[in-house]
């Protein structure tokens, strides 16, 4: 009898854990898929469909270390653009301007999730809440 109860509980627990994970998974997939569309319409022309950028004009999005180091600033880059800044990306220096966008925090989160998990990057979900928190701290 005791064993039966324990095993039922175990099964329930497993289902719970599984469905939670699944929900995260679904959120990630939703962010990633919408993010790829945002990327195509707002970023691809400059950064390329392969994220490789363009010569010394547009930086690549393949420098995982750069993205990780600037994790909390990425949302600010996209919302307010980059003007008169020199960035070292993939050991090369870039000083062109990136225009600001009028994307909503959720769209920024989606496109960042897409970028941070494409082109050889593998940095997981970036939520809308995280983006809003980062945007409040923009310099």
């Amino acid at each position: 009898m005791k064993i039966k109860v324990i095993s039922v509980l175990c099964v329930l627990l497993a289902i719970l854990i599984y469905s939670c994970q699944n929900e995260d998974d679904i959120t990630f997939k939703r962010y990633y898929t919408t993010g790829s569309l945002v990327y195509q319409s707002h970023c691809q022309n400059c950064h390329g469909n392969d994220g490789l950028g363009l010569s010394a004009l547009m930086p690549p999005l393949t420098d995982t270390a750069f993205l990780r180091k600037n994790k909390t600033s990425l949302a600010c880059f996209i919302k307010y653009g980059l003007k008169d800044k020199i960035l070292i990306v993939d050991k090369r220096s870039y000083d062109n301007d990136m225009p600001l966008t009028d994307l909503a925090p959720i769209e920024i989160a989606e496109v960042l999730t897409y970028v941070a998990n494409s082109f050889g990057n593998n940095q997981g979900l970036i939520t809308s809440q995280k983006v809003e928190a980062d945007l409040a701290e923009c310099k």
Binding site: N45, C46, G48, L54, L57, M58, D97, P99
Partner: peptide, 12 residues
């Protein structure tokens, strides 16, 4: 040179 839309694609 400062065209944000199609010029980078054209240049590429």
């Amino acid at each position: 040179t400062t065209c944000p839309s199609i010029c980078p694609v054209m240049a590429k």
